[in-house]
Design a protein around this nucleic acid. Structure first.
Lengths: 156, 156
DNA sequence: ACTGAAACTTCTGACGT
DNA sequence: ACGTCAGAAGTTTCAGT
């Protein structure tokens, strides 16, 4: 990490405010962090260029857009060699209903977070796409009854 | 659902583009959906007001900001009455390292996604905060070895 | 490094179709 | 419901401290 890739308290505050509201203007930012708008603009540009800010996203309402089901699916791979893992990763990258995929320590190989409109499309996904794939040996599906919290904000 | 809360193909396209890039200008939007800028502005405003768009967020780089560990924690509650569930929910709302919390069907009561800077702070969180709480009976911690995919985008 | 002002881009609301 | 246009707002660059 080179010296100019450090962040100070102003940067932290800017990041913190932007992850709460990605549309804050430089004017608004400047009032809250006590810097001039131009300085906020420059700092934000730096934070974007150096990769601290990966991007900006609109967060949509799942229910209102018809994705009523959230599912947590545990996956065990057929074999544990590198090729198989790559095949599985390639499969996931093509499946838009998979929002998250993490390789875990412990019994299960992978845990997926999947959104679907209803039980039929969940079943189609599990039995029609995931299970038939060569890389996959076993899956265990759990349905989310209630989401208490859901954010991508880091505790800065 | 009233009639004016429906969305058409233009709206879908706008939502889809904005969840990929929340900073798209109306000009850019208008070119990609083949509408005038003012029309995009109006539609976007409607989508925001009617709650299809819940907000805009900057997505930060976890690793660069020092949160190297992602953890998946399964929680079993001490008792399954409503008061206990409410106590647990209240606890979670005060813990910024918890990014997600879902109540599940199956053996486990809840699954949490938690980010921490290192193993010590993970241990502090599990043994110092989660386990001592009255509402909690048992937790099982798994560490994420690799994240293959992570998005909040809906498959519109 | 920061500020302030000027040049530029984007937004938005009134109006016409 | 949509597009055009002009006034308002926001962004960014640059000279100055």
């Amino acid at each position: 990490m080179t010296d100019d890739e450090r962040i100070d308290q102003f940067d932290r505050k800017i990041l913190s405010l932007l992850q709460a509201d990605g549309r804050l203007t430089n004017n608004d930012l400047s009032e809250r962090v006590n810097l001039s708008p131009s300085q906020c603009s420059r700092r934000r540009q730096r934070l974007e260029e150096e990769g601290f800010i990966r991007g900006y996203r609109a967060v949509l309402d799942r229910d209102r857009l018809g994705f009523s089901l959230v599912n947590v699916i545990s996956v065990t791979l057929a074999t544990h060699n590198r090729d198989n893992a790559r095949n599985f990763a390639e499969l996931l990258s093509r499946l838009p209903e998979v929002q998250e995929a993490h390789a875990l320590t412990g019994e299960m190989d992978y845990i997926l977070k999947v959104v679907t409109p209803d039980l039929k499309s969940l079943s189609d996904f599990v039995n029609g796409v995931l299970l038939p794939h060569d890389s996959v040996q076993h899956v265990k599906t759990a349905i989310v009854l209630e989401t208490l919290k859901e954010t991508s904000a880091l505790p800065l």
